[in-house]
């Protein structure tokens, strides 16, 4: 009896582990083999693209990537601080979408001065979103004088696709791109109490993006 209980528990645990794993693919592209050097007195600003009509790169994701990247060797300036310091030139309406626009923007002395004050060397543009797809199954919950409960089974897929583009603000060139695709299925099993088996798709995408961007730069210590 004890053996069968242990077996059942192990199976349940395996189901939870397998059910909650996200599949994440990371692609990196660099136009040259030249290392992307970052000095300790230089900062990186991570910004979200917000010009698309049907979605917006959410601030939570940008904050998450910033916190993953931030370390003793990499100084990351918060998005809000950067856009406020150069207001209104990095608002959704005015933010440069191409290097040609960035060059034009940087030709203004007042903007160049602000960038120098903030010691910004690289701009990382994050663009993407997390979507819920293929929702299936059903669950119903009821409550009565004798108690309540949920019965049924529901599942859904989540897909996170994010792309980071790194611009060198001194050289006014693109240094490369990092793309992360993360996908996973989440379940809720209703067996009196609802048991959620959630896959942290967005969190996986953030961790992968943050770690990859951390390795993207050659700091003085590595």
């Amino acid at each position: 009896m004890k053996k069968s209980s242990a077996y059942f528990l192990l199976m349940a645990y395996l189901l939870i582990i397998v059910g909650c794993a996200a599949t994440t693919t990371v692609d990196e592209y660099r136009p040259t083999a030249e290392p992307v050097k970052l000095m300790t007195n230089e900062n990186v600003a991570i910004l979200g693209r917000r010009d698309a009509g049907h979605y917006e790169t959410d601030r939570e994701f940008i904050q998450c990537v910033s916190s993953k990247m931030r370390s003793s060797e990499i100084n990351v300036l918060s998005e809000q601080r950067f856009v406020d310091a150069i207001y209104p030139w990095f608002e959704p309406r005015t933010a440069p979408k191409s290097l040609a626009r960035l060059k034009r923007l940087m030709s203004a002395e007042s903007i160049q001065q602000r960038v120098e004050e903030l010691s910004i060397r690289y701009l990382v543009w994050l663009d993407g979103s997390t979507q819920t797809m293929d929702q299936s199954g059903s669950m119903s919950c009821a409550i009565g004088p004798g108690g309540g409960g949920c019965f049924g089974f529901t599942q859904w897929n989540k897909l996170s696709v994010y792309e980071a583009t790194v611009w060198d603000i001194h050289e006014l060139i693109e240094r490369g791109k990092v793309r992360v695709d993360s996908e996973g299925t989440s379940y809720v099993i209703g067996a009196v109490a609802p048991i959620p088996l959630l896959t942290p798709v967005k969190n996986d995408a953030c961790t992968s993006m943050g770690n990859q961007l951390k390795q993207f730069f050659l700091t003085e210590d590595n």
């Binding site: 917000r50 917006e56 959410d58 939570e60 207001y87 209104p88 608002e91 959704p92 309406r93 979103s129």
Partner: peptide
Amino acid sequence: KTPDSFLASKEKAIKRAATVALRDAGAK
């Protein structure tokens, strides 16, 4: 505009979107 977040209130989302709109007025 501001994205709809899970469990975030409608008030908070409208507040954020209106703030972005006011910043956009300055940009325009």
